[in-house]
Write a protein that binds this DNA or RNA. Structure first.
Lengths: 143, 143
DNA sequence: TATTGTTATACTCTATAACTATA
DNA sequence: TATAGTTATAGAGTATAACAATA
């Protein structure tokens, strides 16, 4: 029998974060998934496959998601010059600005929602997340 | 300028939990949302509206989700005897068994995924989540 | 042959608006 | 009149299978 206290905690934090993504996405006229995609988009110009792994969804979904965000002028495709099969995702200037505002709003909302925790508790949470992912790729190998 | 360390931590934990829900749901032939719904279903026999708030989605979505899970013999509707407008959700015997296995697998997966954290860190995480939600309803008032 | 991204398909999730039945 | 749940609709997310281009 496994202890469920940790699982409950993780489920709680998941619901809180999901609610914030949904709320903020709505503020910007984005779906939850679009808000997430934009929030995790780094300047590394991830490939479609890498993005799928990060988002925990199938590669086939990424095509459509990027299509829609590209149509809105937020993202653009870019062929990898070394491996021409690979498509990399970059943000347009407009996309960059939106992403910055999105991240700012997410950080604000988290700070607000977690304001009943002390600064020490904030640090602990950050440290826990860092310890969790240090040196590991996300465990999304679901095929 | 808001600190982004906490936001990053919350985003990380969110992705980890979402990946586990998706992975486990798939094991049981359920979508991520169905797995979540079943995991948060308490013996309180929540109303459809309460369920929508817990899941952070619109009430109109719950009807279809329950429809599909009812069709699979996992859940059932039950009229509230005091307020006949209200529908309450209950698990069938088969549903109860699945939910128990689902929760067990989720707890196992969390324990496994978080195994690089110490027992003290597990306790801290649980305490943080408790402190976060103590005496508060989830902040899903998005209408 | 294997991999990357795409397309087609079918199903599910999502929110908005309009409806019903209860209160 | 207000609320709980439903339905219809349209759009978006999701996985599976089959495909083209590239390696």
């Amino acid at each position: 029998m496994t202890s469920h206290a940790l699982a409950t905690a993780v489920a709680t934090l998941h619901r809180e974060a999901a609610a914030l993504y949904a709320l903020i996405g709505r503020e910007f006229g984005l779906t939850t998934q679009q808000a997430q995609l934009l929030c995790v988009l780094t300047s590394d110009r991830p490939s479609f496959s890498e993005l799928a792994i990060t988002l925990g969804c199938d590669r086939t979904n990424v095509t459509g998601m990027i299509d829609r965000l590209e149509k809105r002028g937020l993202l653009a495709r870019e062929r990898d010059s070394e491996d021409r099969r690979v498509n990399r995702v970059t943000a347009t200037q407009e996309g960059e600005q939106l992403i910055a505002r999105l991240r700012e709003r997410f950080a604000e909302s988290v700070a607000d929602r977690f304001s009943r925790l002390t600064p020490e508790e904030h640090d602990r949470l950050a440290a826990l997340a860092t310890a969790l992912t240090q040196g590991t790729a996300p465990s999304f190998n679901h095929h």
